[in-house]
Design a protein around this nucleic acid. Structure first.
Lengths: 343, 343
DNA sequence: TTGAAAGCGCTAACAT
DNA sequence: ATGTTAGCGCTTTCAA
């Protein structure tokens, strides 16, 4: 029966004492990668640890070892389908690699990002994963990059989700190819006149998806003039507002709308409904990402699926598996009822 | 210009040396709650820290202090509207209190939960917040509770979101009252014959929402027989399946369906559609939670709003603000088009 | 194989 | 007010 101890945390020393061995031995048994195993002393240690309900003090280990097994995930937001699913994906992949994940929400604020990165350096996080969607000024990028380089110099690893101009490893989503194939698919269904609801202008993702779409149209002999693009930002509200502000003339001359992500597409549906237009009866609509909530949307939304689970795995591979950057993750077109064949 | 140093982490000692003061002084300036402020030495230290881009090693601090400022949030799942919004709420409230949040996903697996709690004890997490929705056997509850009590004995604090039979502080969501008021509101709209789509049987939340609903009906002279409840679990798929398996007779005799959460309500809509029934034309429907994605649903879903932001604040208050347990968070009925007035 | 001892970066008495 | 000196719990040389 538990006789003496105060309920204070059980330390390695306690275990060692109880097992009648030295602390180093206990340490070796309990953690030190099985090296120089203690024949049957090991059993004693294990038993003692179990009886005492020992649980290693991770912070102390980190201090002694000089490294942690923590991965920090920086997202701009978490109450969003896309990011929460990305988060889940990274977490589950990380766990398999024995990495713990800390999530930090940047709220798209640069100062906050920089501060976070600096903190993370202090925390000896093993890696920082940037999966954001905010726009940054040139000067902002520089400052952030500077801080991140400081972090890498201190031994950390930075991985960016989505192509980046910063000198870090990244997982490349096939935004260009996905959008390109979507354009081709839509034209094959008979669509000829498009309007694009753009996300944050200046963001790589925005650019790639637009360029890809344009390229696909070009392949089919069609053009996408700049006037056929309305920028807002990658949010439901953004698209809702953009659609609300669209010219009647423009709208009635458009056969299909391409929202640069699903969240926007859903906002667009609401915005259109507000103007008395229905999808696809009055206008067709396609999105990008294939977020989970699409299963609740009727009629089904045509989109380009980004396999977040794969992205998560790719990220972790880059960190722990020694994979080469960039890794490219495919994007596949999914045609649903929001873009019926035009006759 | 940065002349000498290797790019190894800058330590407090480095800063102290550079500022020409002792390490303790540096420590006091940089962290030690402003006590015994160093007149203008402080400036030197601050400057040195800045030049060297010093960032405190949090793990070392934790070891030395014996406590951390980490809060661990245990959720069963994160790729779900309800949990991601709860997560966001807790994180934002925690940040205000200077707490860092680590998210752990339990996948509703008991063994995993227990292991996590043990780890968290080793990590000296300051608090563990349980915001889950899994069912547990009596023996499971005992083992988990045991581990959690060990954690509290070691100095941690446990807070449960939702009423619990375990001896820990909790934030009480007004499930009973919300459901009760919903029942009253629906009967006032003319509904008399209901069917309930229950979540995980045996879960407190399930029980409370059903009891509340029943109570509300009773108040209006109506009954809810057990035969009018179909249990599945708190998921889209669960409700989808349950609706699919419902008797035609039952369905045609039901005027309104009450799904115990919105996720289920959305699954029910899909299930009903599958059977050729539409909401609210063929049957009315109400949910619970008021998750974000409801804005994408047409017709709007009647539901009971759970203010997650408030829950988040309440949780943190319990941890850092010395609030009394339990704190009760209200739930308010929101009537939308899925339950039109019956005439 | 096992143990003794030094040290990881930091804080907190305890002097001064 | 500032510096000295022990630790915090753990890992890891280095001897034995």
């Amino acid at each position: 029966m538990p006789a003496e101890r105060r309920s204070h945390p059980v330390t390695l020393a306690d275990v060692a004492r109880r097992a009648g061995v030295s602390q180093s031995t206990a340490s070796r048994v309990l953690n030190g990668s099985e090296r120089t195993v203690g024949g049957e002393l090991a059993q004693r240690v294990l038993a003692a640890a179990d009886e005492l309900r020992y649980s290693a003090n991770v912070q102390a280990q980190a201090v002694a070892r000089g490294t942690t097994t923590n991965l920090a995930l920086l997202v701009s937001d978490i109450a969003t389908d896309y990011f929460s699913s990305m988060t889940a994906a990274v977490m589950s992949a990380a766990e398999l690699a024995g990495l713990r994940v800390t999530i930090a929400i940047t709220e798209r604020r640069l100062e906050r990002e920089i501060e976070l990165v600096r903190d993370l350096r202090g925390q000896h996080a093993r890696a920082i994963v940037l999966a954001e969607s905010g726009t940054r000024s040139r000067e902002g990028v520089e400052r952030l990059q500077d801080e991140l380089e400081g972090y890498e110099a201190a031994g950390g690893k930075v991985v960016v989700v989505s192509r980046t101009t910063m000198p870090f490893d990244f997982v490349d989503l096939d935004n260009f190819g996905g959008a390109r194939r979507l354009a081709v698919a839509l034209t094959r269904l008979g669509y000829k006149r498009f309007h694009v609801l753009g996300g944050d202008e200046g963001l790589v993702t925005t650019r790639e998806r637009i360029e890809g779409f344009r390229d696909g149209l070009a392949e089919r002999g069609l053009e996408l003039p700049d006037s056929a693009i309305t920028f807002s930002d990658f949010s439901w509200e953004g698209a809702f507002g953009a659609v609300g502000a669209l010219d009647d003339a423009v709208l009635s001359n458009t056969q299909a709308l391409f929202a640069l992500n699903d969240e926007m597409a859903l906002g667009a549906i609401a915005g259109l409904r507000n103007r008395g237009m229905r999808v696809p009866d009055d206008i067709a609509l396609a999105g990008f990402d294939d977020i989970r909530t699409l299963r609740n949307v009727v009629p089904g939304l045509t989109t380009v699926r980004v396999p977040t689970a794969q992205v998560g795995r790719a990220v972790v591979e880059l960190i722990a598996g020694g994979a080469q950057s960039p890794t490219t993750v495919p994007a596949t077109v999914v045609i649903r009822e929001s873009t019926p064949r035009l006759n």
